[in-house]
């Protein structure tokens, strides 16, 4: 009896797994398209950091849009693991290193770091302490660099 229950559960589990796999396969996008898509989002991140970097350097005092920029970076950061599905290491020109897939946990952790720092950046951008904002912009940039160091080639 016990044995049969387990067997049933196993079959059910297997069925669920297969459905899941089928779903994943169906959802998988063309690597070339995923690469293009994620590059667009990295461009967006870059541009926001560029604008905020000028403020952090003190070369402009203008800080318009920072809350929205930080919010967008935060939203993109949460997507990063999904933007690098297995198989998207080729198909179009990409600087993604194989470590993204071979050291997946580290990669996800690096993306998570950006999520954490950009969340703090939203708070800092809403606040009035300019020095805290500058420091947090730097911290966010360091989160970018921390991931690029291991996972992006030149």
């Amino acid at each position: 009896m016990k044995y049969r229950v387990n067997k049933t559960a196993m079959i059910a589990g297997l069925a669920i797994c297969l459905t899941g796999v089928a779903g994943l396969v169906q959802a998988a996008d063309e690597p070339a398209n995923v690469i293009k898509y994620r590059k667009s989002l990295m461009t967006a991140n870059t541009s926001h950091m560029g604008a905020m970097g000028e403020f952090a350097k003190g070369t402009v005092t203008f800080k318009g849009g920072f809350v929205e920029f930080a919010t967008a970076i935060n939203a993109i950061s949460m997507q990063i693991p999904a933007l690098f599905p297995a198989g998207s290491n080729t198909g179009a020109e990409t600087r993604a290193k194989p470590e993204i897939w071979s050291k997946r946990d580290d990669f996800v952790a690096a993306a998570k770091k950006l999520e954490t720092e950009s969340a703090k950046l939203i708070v800092a951008a809403k606040g009035t302490d300019e020095n805290a904002l500058k420091a947090q912009i730097t911290a966010t940039q360091q989160a970018c660099g921390g991931c690029h160091e291991t996972f992006r080639s030149r």
């Binding site: 667009s40 989002l41 870059t46 541009s47 604008a51 967008a72």
Partner: peptide, 30 residues
């Protein structure tokens, strides 16, 4: 520097538009 600043912002808009267009064309489902 203001030129650099706004070019950054515009480049970001371009990034979003490219991303949105990829979705609109059905190229990505992520």
């Amino acid at each position: 520097d203001m030129i650099r600043y706004r070019q950054s912002a515009m480049k970001g808009n371009g990034g979003y538009l490219n991303a949105l267009n990829a979705y609109a064309k059905g190229e990505v489902t992520v």
